[in-house]
Design a protein around this nucleic acid. Structure first.
Length: 314
DNA sequence: TGCCAGGCGGGGT
DNA sequence: ACCCCGCATGGC
């Protein structure tokens, strides 16, 4: 029998710029991170488990901290993590204006205006998630991440909301498990994940370890550091971009995609890539191209996608 | 069943 | 600067 975390603190916050709480909460959230009304942000700090719970409250957002500790340092940490993950201080007005007339991204300018990236607390989480996307479909990659948390992360239960939530396992936990982490279905990626865990613990640069290439590096920096400047180019974008923006049914080189993205979106190229996955529901490329031909996209489909993943128990 | 699927690095040319 | 292959896994 596990005990739930106890309530230790609450406060109100108001995002500074254009902001949609629901859309941001949904974006790349799993079943444990959003329940339709509340966002949950579990984290572990100095061995103590905590979870920030956020919901809309009149014109503001109510933020509650549940934890094993009530120290002020813990509360400060929780507020900082929540602000980073939810992007409360992020100004995307320039980006929303930029995409108003974009062939594909226009819904981000309206009606999805206010959506921000839901980030992860740190580079460790960002790298593991990105590594799981290598050479895998959307659902396969996310199944790995969900298995990873469920099997190796600590379970949190918020009694007040009857909400169960698994924290992200620490690098130390993963190193101790070693090759056993393949039980999460990560396959040959396990070596790269272990390399990253070791680099982080020994304070070396985790973005340069073996198995982390340019794509993984860029995706992980976007989702963990909100570093939006560089487009992560994979096979999916090499087919999607020429088709969607040049009507060409051919695959462009990585270099050509980068040049196109830099010219079209400038410093927002990386964010545009992530928003493209939301708008297209991250469909497999062949079915996506068929849908584009018919001119109909469904960002909120009845299957797992960047905006609906939270509804599914994978 | 035998293929892939949002990568990657190593080894060829 | 390219091309090509193997690598685990699970779903179609």
């Amino acid at each position: 029998m596990k005990f739930g975390l106890k309530f230790v603190y609450d406060t109100k916050v108001r995002p500074r710029y254009e902001y949609s709480f629901k859309l941001t909460s949904m974006f790349y959230a799993t079943q444990w991170d959003f329940d339709g009304r509340r966002s949950y942000i579990p984290f572990e700090y100095e061995g103590k488990l905590s979870c920030v719970v956020i919901r809309e409250f009149h014109e503001d957002l109510k933020l509650e901290i549940f934890s094993e500790s009530s120290e002020s340092i813990l509360i400060e940490k929780a507020l900082k993590i929540a602000s980073h993950v939810m992007g409360f201080d992020e100004d995307l007005s320039e980006f929303y204006e930029l995409v108003l007339n974009d062939k594909i991204l226009w819904p981000i300018g309206w009606p999805l205006r206010g959506i921000h990236l839901r980030a992860v607390p740190g580079v460790w989480e960002g790298l593991v998630i990105s590594i799981c996307q290598q050479n895998a479909s959307f659902s396969q990659g996310w199944r790995m991440v969900i298995n990873f948390r469920k099997l190796f992360g600590k379970r949190i239960f918020i009694q007040e909301y009857k909400h169960e939530c698994y924290a992200f396992p620490s690098p130390r936990t993963i190193i101790n498990l070693g090759r056993n982490i393949t039980s999460a279905g990560v396959g040959y990626r396990y070596k790269t994940i272990l390399n990253v865990a070791k680099a982080i613990l020994s304070d070396e640069d985790p973005f340069t370890v073996k198995g982390v290439g340019e794509y993984t590096r860029r995706v992980s920096k976007i989702i963990s550091l909100r570093d939006y400047s560089k487009m992560p180019v994979d096979k999916w974008f090499r087919k999607l971009i020429p088709f969607a923006y040049a009507g060409a049914r051919e695959e462009w080189s990585t270099r050509r995609i980068e040049e196109f993205a830099e010219k079209k979106w400038g410093k927002w190229a990386g964010l545009s890539a992530i928003m493209l996955t939301a708008i297209t529901a991250a469909e497999p490329i062949s079915s996506l191209l068929r849908k584009l031909e018919r001119g109909f996209l469904t960002p909120i489909p009845a299957k797992p996608s960047p905006l609906t993943l939270w509804r599914y128990k994978i």
